[in-house]
Amino acid sequence: MRIQRATLLMTIIFIASVVYIILYFKLFIPTPEQEHNITVILKEHNIRSDFWQTVSAGAEAAAKESGVNITINGPLQETDIDAQIRLLEEVLEQKPQAVVIAPINDDRVTAEMEKIQEAKIPLVIIDTPVSQNSAPALVSNDHFTAGMQAGKVTLEQTKDSPKSVIISDFVNSGVSAEREKGVRKALLPFSQSVYGTYYNSDSEERAYIIAKTIMREHNDLNAIIALNESAALGAAKAIKDANKTGLIKLISFDTSVYEIRLLEEGTLNATVVQQPFNIGYLGVQTVLDLLDGKKVKPVTYTNSIVVTKENMYSPENQKLLFPFIDK
């Protein structure tokens, strides 16, 4: 009887200690938390491109805030379609949990994106909308509204009597088309406000020639709306050459060191600036929401800011024009 009881107690204690030890080791090897892995593919991943670097900073900020791992990739040049396709193929192989992409406008890229969607990987498009059947969620600057803002600035600068031309890059450029629509909408109430739209094929040289020609043709011209940087730089050169700084108002989009200089000297009267940081940030946030199973808006627009010489050094705009502290 005594022996029996002792054995019973020993057995219980033994089982208890075994359970204890198992639990001890199971519990104190911290089970790695399930981490999200997100891949971001940009149009251009190049330290020279302030815009895309800012987008990537925004994406990183969102990733850090949510504690997810992020990989940011992109071709070195915005024109390198093959590189982006290669990256997308890699993504398909690696199968990250979510993908954010700024696609280069090309059918092959769209096809790759459809493959990603078929693989049930949450996908969010930033910056450039694509024409696709089941289009993924889009986070983009509202180019139409930006165009409207540019139009309104033109009105302000020309004291509501605009006689302008629009210099765009390509006929088929989606972004430029949207901007143009916005500009025209803002200027529509004023008769003879837009003499026409010209295309510089993204060449500063051509923009210069175009601006020169127009200035010659239209004596009452008081505003040039340049839908991209090259157009703005070419037009600015033409205005300066014609000594018409201040007489012909130059309104442009986006920002670069050259545009900033033009803004400071007064050749460029206003530029409508996107918020790339926000695009990157919201892009990642949207894809995280998708991962969490939340409903997301099909399109999220970010705002543009009109920067003039007067407000370019305000705390907010400094950050937009000079996004990087280290430069």
Partner: peptide, 16 residues
């Protein structure tokens, strides 16, 4: 109460 430095200053300015 002005922000001197913030890693996400842009987001604060645009109220995100």
């Amino acid at each position: 109460g002005n922000i001197v430095y913030h890693p996400q200053q842009q987001l604060l300015y645009s109220n995100l």
